[in-house]
Computed example of a mutant assay.
Amino acid sequence: MGGDHGATTKKTEISFTGRFASSAFSACVAEICTIPLDTAKVRLQLQKTAVGSGNGAGLPKYQGMLGTVGTIAREEGMVALWKGIIPGLHRQCLFGGLRIGLYEPVKTLYVGNDFVGEVPLSKKILAGLTTGALAICVANPTDLVKVRLQAEGKLAPGMPRRYSGSLNAYSTIFRQEGLGALWTGLGPNVARNAIINAAELASYDQVKQTILKIPGFSDNSLTHILSGLGAGFFAVCIGSPVDVVKSRMMGDAAYKSTFDCFVKTLKNDGPFAFYKGFIPNFGRLGSWNVIMFLTLEQAKKIFVKEVPN
């Protein structure tokens, strides 16, 4: 994400439209590849501690990332793993395009146009927090619909589905619960996405900058993969607790507020509940970041223009 590295004398620049388009496209590619892991993550997070649920020792239905993927595929068919892909793509076009596309311009805004040298980490974090918060305020309805579609498991025979598809979900929520309901969970969602965005973009930027100082490394795909993995790891460590609260609030109307959800989760399920689904979350965010940044670094080349110094 950083500036242009290497010994080029020509200056290159990319328009906001180019940044937005390449960011939205890269985010959509990553979403399509990794949404089965995201669906597994949502199911694991929404699963309450098992209470003798008639299956012998009361074991939870979903166990582990691959176990959850297997259970969903077996019970509901492979297609169920891509539940929520349409609002997921709506979300990535809006959210991915804005948060990633605005990152460089906002970072420049914070350091000033005439800034020369390495941007301080604090400014990178601040830029990530800003663009993450702004982008999710626009994209929250897409997130809500995606979680609701993913949360719906196998239904009893004759039970109608809550929503027939993503557009039906938007209109049903609007009709039955009001316009404001589309922004349910905005508080934890802003917190989560600002934090995760800052962790992803700032750490990608920082890890890439550090790797490029190591002899033998250049601005190539290996560097992008390593930086993407670093970005995913930091994002999950920092963002997991707010992610669990967000999924629970969006998937279950029993919570009065973010704080209420946090307290009830802590009391009923213990502190480890906040890292429920850590492995699928890292599997998801790690692979998501690797795919997204690899695609982005290539996609940006289409929009880059050389300008005279």
Rank of each mutant, 00 (worst) to 15 (best):
156 A>C: 07
156 A>G: 03
157 P>D: 11
157 P>K: 11
157 P>H: 09
158 G>Q: 06
158 G>Y: 02
159 M>D: 12
160 P>M: 04
160 P>L: 01
160 P>A: 07
160 P>C: 00
162 R>H: 07
162 R>S: 12
163 Y>N: 05
164 S>G: 12
164 S>P: 06
164 S>N: 13
165 G>D: 14
165 G>I: 09
165 G>T: 11
165 G>Y: 08
165 G>P: 09
166 S>L: 04
166 S>R: 00
166 S>F: 07
167 L>V: 14
167 L>E: 12
168 N>C: 07
169 A>L: 09
171 S>F: 11
171 S>N: 05
172 T>Y: 03
172 T>P: 02
173 I>A: 02
173 I>F: 00
173 I>T: 01
174 F>D: 02
174 F>Y: 14
174 F>Q: 11
175 R>P: 02
175 R>Y: 06
175 R>C: 09
176 Q>L: 12
177 E>G: 04
178 G>D: 11
178 G>W: 11
179 L>Y: 09
179 L>A: 13
181 A>W: 04
181 A>H: 06
182 L>W: 03
182 L>D: 06
183 W>L: 07
183 W>N: 01
183 W>Q: 04
183 W>T: 05
184 T>K: 13
184 T>H: 11
185 G>N: 08
185 G>C: 07
186 L>D: 08
187 G>C: 12
187 G>W: 06
187 G>H: 08
187 G>T: 10
188 P>S: 09
188 P>D: 10
188 P>K: 04
189 N>P: 09
189 N>K: 02
189 N>E: 09
190 V>Q: 12
190 V>T: 13
190 V>C: 07
191 A>N: 08
191 A>E: 10
192 R>I: 06
192 R>D: 11
193 N>I: 03
195 I>W: 04
196 I>C: 15
196 I>W: 06
197 N>T: 15
197 N>F: 02
198 A>G: 13
198 A>M: 13
199 A>V: 06
200 E>I: 15
200 E>H: 12
200 E>N: 14
201 L>V: 15
201 L>M: 15
201 L>I: 14
201 L>N: 12
201 L>D: 02
205 D>F: 13
205 D>N: 15
205 D>R: 08
205 D>I: 03
206 Q>V: 01
206 Q>S: 14
207 V>F: 13
207 V>T: 10
208 K>N: 13
209 Q>H: 14
210 T>W: 14
210 T>V: 14
210 T>A: 15
210 T>D: 09
210 T>Y: 12
211 I>H: 05
211 I>N: 05
211 I>C: 06
211 I>G: 08
211 I>A: 06
212 L>Q: 04
212 L>K: 02
213 K>N: 02
214 I>K: 02
214 I>L: 06
214 I>C: 00
214 I>V: 14
214 I>E: 00
214 I>T: 12
214 I>F: 00
215 P>D: 01
215 P>M: 00
215 P>T: 00
215 P>F: 00
216 G>Q: 01
216 G>Y: 00
217 F>Y: 08
217 F>T: 00
218 S>I: 03
218 S>E: 12
218 S>F: 01
218 S>N: 08
219 D>V: 01
219 D>H: 09
219 D>P: 07
220 N>I: 00
220 N>W: 02
